[in-house]
Simulated assay, not measured.
Amino acid sequence: MSRRLLNRESSGPRRRHPRFDVWVPISDIAAWREELHATGYERMNPGIDVDSPGGPTMEVIDPFSNTIRFCQITA
C-alpha cells in the first residue's frame, strides 16, 4: 500500500459503528426506572410502555445510539 493511499484513508471521514438494539429482561422495571431517574442525567428520563408486547418495556438510547430495551417479563 502506498503512503499516499494510507494518508488518504486515515484522513477521511470516521466510520460509524453499526447501531444495535438490545433486549434485557428485568424483574422490576419500575424500580429500575426510579434508579435511572435518581442519577440526575437529563437524558436518562425514560418512560415505561405498559402496552408493549411481551410486558412493560422501557427504552434507553446510549451515547453511541444503541437502543437498550428493558422488558419486565410477565408470566
Rank of each mutant, 00 (worst) to 15 (best):
I68C: 11
N45C: 12
I61F: 06
R4C: 03
W23S: 13
S65C: 03
F20E: 03
T39G: 04
I61T: 15
G40H: 08
S10D: 05
P13W: 00
E9L: 15
M44G: 02
S27W: 02
N7W: 12
I68K: 06
W32T: 09
D21T: 13
I68M: 06
G55M: 09
G12V: 04
R8L: 15
T57I: 02
F64G: 09
L5V: 07
I26Y: 02
P18Y: 06
S10R: 15
P13M: 05
F70W: 08
W32I: 12
S11K: 10
I68H: 05
R69Y: 09
N7S: 09
W23I: 14
M1H: 14
D62T: 10
F20N: 02
S52D: 12
E34T: 08
G55P: 00
P63I: 12
V50T: 06
D49C: 04
R16I: 02
Y41T: 10
R19T: 12
G12Y: 03
S52H: 14
D28F: 00
R4Y: 13
E35F: 00
E59N: 15
W23P: 00
A31F: 01
D51K: 11
D28L: 04
M1N: 03
D49E: 09
N7G: 05
R14N: 09
P13C: 07
N66Q: 11
I48H: 10
S11L: 10
N45A: 14
S11T: 06
L36K: 05
M1D: 11
G40N: 03
Y41W: 14
R69F: 03
P18H: 06
D62E: 02
T39Y: 04
E34I: 06
P46F: 00
V60T: 01
D28T: 02
F64W: 10
G47V: 10
S11I: 01
M1T: 14
H37M: 08
R8D: 11
N45Y: 00
S52R: 03
I29F: 01
S2Q: 05
G55K: 04
I61N: 00
G54W: 01
H17M: 10
T67D: 02
I26H: 04
A30L: 12
S2N: 13
G12S: 09
P63E: 04
P56T: 00
E9M: 13
A30Y: 05
V60M: 09
S2H: 08
G47A: 11
R69V: 04
N45L: 13
T67L: 14
V60H: 02
H17C: 08
I48S: 11
D28E: 08
R15L: 14
D51Q: 14
N45T: 14
E42S: 15
I48V: 07
N7P: 00
P25K: 07
R19N: 07
I48K: 08
R19Y: 03
S11W: 02
R16C: 07
E42K: 13
H37V: 03
